[in-house]
Amino acid sequence: MAILKHIASKNADYGEAQRYLIFQYDESTKKPLLDENGHLQPREEYYLDGINCDPFTFDTECMELNAAYHKNQNYNEIKSHHYILSFDPNDRDEHGLTGERAQQLGLEYAKKNFPGHQALVCAHTDGHNGSGNIHVHIVINSLRKFDVERQDFMERPCDSLAGNKHHLTKKYLIHLKQEVMDMCRRENLNQVDLLTPAERKITEKEYWANHRGQEKLDTQNQRMIADGITPRNTKFQTQKQFLRDSINSAVSSAHTLEEFQKILSEKYRILIKESRGRFSYLHLERTKPITGRN
């Protein structure tokens, strides 16, 4: 399936976005990967285009536009919006998706849904977050450069005028997700309903905590195997995931609240606290409980 991710950035250095798209970065630390001489290393394959700007002077052109309208001058202002359109890893083999074709789709998507903005569009084939999929980055200056025809997803009259900033509302985000779904179905690419909320979501912070934890566990296990020891655990689990799995297990067998609490306490060493009808769960390695909502 294709998914859409949005990141709002207050970074005034537009050149950082250019460097990230062109050069190799460590996805977990967001730092560039340097060669033995300390130089940036170009990505092996990428496709880069600019909309309403030259892709190699995107940073300068954005700053010039901001200065002309006296916008994006304060630290707390959102300077750019970064959208990531990630295609299903199977689309490469099953449907012949290439980086070049993904770039064409990304350009079409950006021109249609972010009209009037300066934008960088760049397709990567090296897999976002190590997933092995083809994906497209769309980075836009938050300030619109040209007047455009007003679209249905624009809620304010000024949203179509030059000198006004990108305004991502709930309605707009729904539109963007629908556009992804329609495009993938038109292209016969794998796709699911992005508008139906997932039963469980994890934050990006937890995702990377799990990613780093798994890497550390794999390294430890490799040392144990080299010493002739069979590792007991091969899959890392965050504290939150441990709570989720334990709660699901307890719920499946408990018939009362008291029985539910007993199972969690005796089997998983998880303590439950209740405040105003809301539950929180204390992991055995924590001093502060985690709320049921989190």
Rank of each mutant, 00 (worst) to 15 (best):
I3Q: 11
A8H: 14
N11Y: 10
D13P: 02
E16S: 15
A17Y: 13
R19T: 05
I22L: 09
F23N: 08
F23D: 06
Q24M: 07
E27V: 10
S28Q: 13
K31H: 05
K31C: 03
L33M: 07
L34H: 04
D35H: 05
E36Y: 07
G38L: 02
G38N: 01
L40W: 02
Y46I: 08
G50W: 04
I51T: 02
I51R: 07
C53S: 02
F58Q: 01
C62H: 00
L65V: 00
A68E: 00
A68N: 00
A68T: 00
N72D: 01
N74P: 07
K79G: 00
K79R: 09
K79T: 00
H82T: 03
S86Y: 02
F87K: 03
P89R: 11
R92F: 08
E100L: 14
R101V: 10
A102F: 15
A102V: 08
G106V: 05
E108V: 04
K112V: 08
N113K: 06
A119Q: 10
A123Q: 08
H124D: 02
T125H: 07
H128R: 11
G130M: 03
S131L: 13
S131W: 10
I134R: 06
I140M: 08
S142G: 07
V148G: 04
R150P: 05
R156P: 04
A162G: 06
K165E: 06
H167G: 04
H167W: 08
T169W: 03
L176D: 03
M181S: 09
R186Y: 12
E187W: 14
L189G: 04
L189Y: 11
N190G: 12
L194D: 05
R200S: 11
R200M: 07
I202G: 09
T203E: 05
Y207L: 09
H211N: 01
E215M: 13
L217I: 00
T219S: 12
N221K: 01
R223E: 01
R223F: 06
M224Q: 11
A226S: 09
I229P: 05
P231K: 00
R232V: 00
Q241W: 10
F242M: 11
R244N: 10
I247K: 09
I247C: 09
V251A: 06
S253T: 13
S253F: 14
A254H: 01
H255P: 08
H255T: 13
L257C: 14
L257A: 11
L257I: 13
E259Q: 15
Q261C: 15
K262D: 05
S265I: 05
Y268H: 15
R269N: 13
I270V: 12
L271T: 13
G277D: 06
R286G: 12
T287C: 15
K288H: 12
P289W: 04
T291R: 15
N294K: 15
